[in-house]
């Protein structure tokens, strides 16, 4: 299987060097290169690559800021020459990173990790995507940066989205970071077979519901795997019942 790859670095020679190093990997196909964050954002959205090599220090937005803007993140291998701050972020968040000049052995390890991660992914049929908007799949990766902490989380691992001021708190595992996107913007992109808008504030993962009970005035109350309770508003209750009976 080919790993469709994008190189993001503001220095020509650095991209040239990465291209040279990657030429030893027959399963890596380099789709294109990008020299800054806005170029990179456009190309990631256009190509939807499996993997990007991302330089952290770029003019304009840095690598982290760029990733946080994406709806869906490809697999990412971070690259930096020397940046104490970025390296600390990589270490504390267990992110895969390479230091320039890049050692071939380290690169092999990083590519192997990505290969494994891609193999685990359920192959999805891209033809089912609607023409408008950008639809996420259950196995889409989402990059969340909340202060110092960074997360790559698979959409299917998220059990609850909850709006908080203008942002969204995202619940998965034992974590609940704040994602700098609005609930409404996110709601449009989530796969409807997995996520359900329970009320104005919350979106639940239907696969995570363990119990449903009638509540006051025609509302429903559902319990999630982790014990959290979510109320389904009267307006949404009808559709909810319909969805579950399907």
């Amino acid at each position: 299987m080919q790993i469709r790859t994008l190189l993001i670095d503001d220095e020509d020679l650095a991209r040239q060097e990465m291209r040279h190093l990657l030429s030893a990997f027959p399963d890596i196909t380099i789709l294109d290169e990008a020299a800054d964050a806005s170029d990179a954002l456009a190309k990631i959205r256009r190509y939807r690559p499996d993997l990007v090599f991302l330089d952290i220090n770029m003019p304009g937005k840095n690598g982290f800021e760029m990733l946080a803007e994406l709806e869906e993140s490809p697999h990412v291998v971070f690259v930096t020459a020397y940046d104490e701050f970025a390296v600390r972020a990589f270490e504390t968040n267990a992110l895969d990173y390479l230091l320039k000049p890049v050692r071939t052995e380290r690169l092999e390890k990083a590519v192997a990790t990505v290969r494994d991660a891609i193999r685990e992914q359920v192959p999805s049929a891209p033809a089912t995507e609607p023409a408008t908007g950008y639809q996420l799949r259950p196995d889409s990766l989402v990059f969340i940066k909340d202060g110092e902490k960074c997360y790559f989380v698979r959409l299917s691992d998220i059990f609850l989205f909850e709006s908080e001021d203008n942002y969204v708190r995202v619940y998965f595992g034992t974590e609940k970071p704040l994602h700098r996107k609005s609930l409404n913007a996110l709601a449009e992109k989530l796969p409807p077979e997995m996520f359900f808008r329970a009320n104005r504030q919350q979106i639940v993962n239907l696969n995570n519901i363990t119990n449903i009970e009638p509540f006051f005035n025609g509302t429903l109350r559902v319990t999630l795997h982790n014990g959290a309770r979510v109320e389904i508003s009267v307006r949404r209750a009808g559709e909810f019942k319909e969805r579950l009976s399907l």
Partner: peptide
């Protein structure tokens, strides 16, 4: 930062 970037350029 300059030093390692320069070394990377040289390697390229």
């Amino acid at each position: 930062h300059f030093l390692f970037n320069a070394l990377n350029s040289v390697k390229a």
